Computed example of a mutant assay.
Amino acid sequence: MPVTLRHVQPDAGHKLRQLETSAAELERAARESIPPELLPQPAPRHLRTLASKANAYGKVPLSYLQRARKTLRRWAKPVAGAVRATVGLITETAFYVLLALGGLFVLAALILLLAPPA
């Protein structure tokens, strides 16, 4: 239920009005105390002109954007497939290298355990 002055006790409503008035006075005093050199200044005219020209030059016809989008869509699936295949091959290679190293470790441990002392 929203809180309005109708649903607030009369003394609380009066205090709320006083608070709002005090806050408005404080805000006005704070705005007046800001030195003029700290106030935001409008951009110089030549910068506004430059910005509008840059905005006008930056507009690209929609047909170019549509062609670029279609090209990216056409190349996205094969590239994604190639990346997946490459990651799969690297993962499989790492697995077999670790398997071979594990086998060599076991073989070296058996040789050390079973070899006669020198």
Results as ranks from 00 to 15, higher is better:
residue 105 F to W: 09
residue 62 L to N: 11
residue 59 K to L: 13
residue 113 L to G: 09
residue 63 S to G: 13
residue 2 P to K: 09
residue 93 T to V: 09
residue 61 P to V: 00
residue 21 T to L: 05
residue 50 L to A: 01
residue 13 G to D: 07
residue 70 K to G: 12
residue 106 V to E: 01
residue 39 L to E: 12
residue 58 G to L: 02
residue 75 W to H: 13
residue 1 M to H: 11
residue 22 S to V: 10
residue 69 R to S: 15
residue 8 V to T: 15
residue 29 A to N: 02
residue 12 A to Q: 03
residue 21 T to A: 09
residue 107 L to A: 14
residue 27 E to M: 08
residue 80 A to S: 13
residue 52 S to D: 14
residue 34 I to F: 06
residue 82 A to T: 08
residue 38 L to Y: 08
residue 14 H to T: 14
residue 81 G to H: 11
residue 48 R to W: 09
residue 103 G to T: 00
residue 96 Y to N: 04
residue 11 D to R: 10
residue 104 L to V: 12
residue 100 A to R: 00
residue 29 A to I: 02
residue 118 A to T: 14
residue 96 Y to M: 00
residue 62 L to A: 09
residue 31 R to W: 10
residue 47 L to D: 02
residue 28 R to S: 08
residue 38 L to I: 01
residue 27 E to Q: 15
residue 95 F to W: 12
residue 29 A to S: 03
residue 30 A to V: 06
residue 47 L to W: 14
residue 30 A to L: 07
residue 37 E to L: 08
residue 100 A to L: 00
residue 103 G to L: 00
residue 29 A to Y: 09
residue 52 S to L: 15
residue 89 L to E: 10
residue 6 R to N: 13
residue 82 A to W: 07
residue 82 A to P: 02
residue 118 A to R: 14
residue 80 A to F: 05
residue 5 L to E: 12
residue 25 E to Q: 11
